[in-house]
Amino acid sequence: MTDLDATFAALADPTRRAIVARLARGEATVGELAEPFDMSLPAISKHLRVLERAGLITRGREAQTRPCKLSPKPLDEAIAWIEKHKATWEGRLDRLDAYVQKLKESRK
């Protein structure tokens, strides 16, 4: 799995997206992250491990709370990947434009 694949796989789950959105507002403990969900702490911890493996979050080493923090780099890479597809069509339309101008000239 590439880094990007891991990011996409991690973000393909709505609970994990919600966790990432929550962490965008600042770091939080597992207990705080679990609050809005009807889910056990071990279940939340499992989601956090997926996010951690994908490099989307980092976890503090201190004490038992181990607060979670967002690491924006993989997210930026995923967004850049999305933008690339739009750029593919933008480039295509540039070339289409140039090509129809050539057709136009040749018909004069």
Binding site: L4, F8, A9, W81, I82, H85, K86, A87, T88
Partner: peptide
């Protein structure tokens, strides 16, 4: 995933 060339 890897094939979509930037698909949203």
């Amino acid at each position: 995933g890897p094939r979509m060339n930037g698909a949203p």
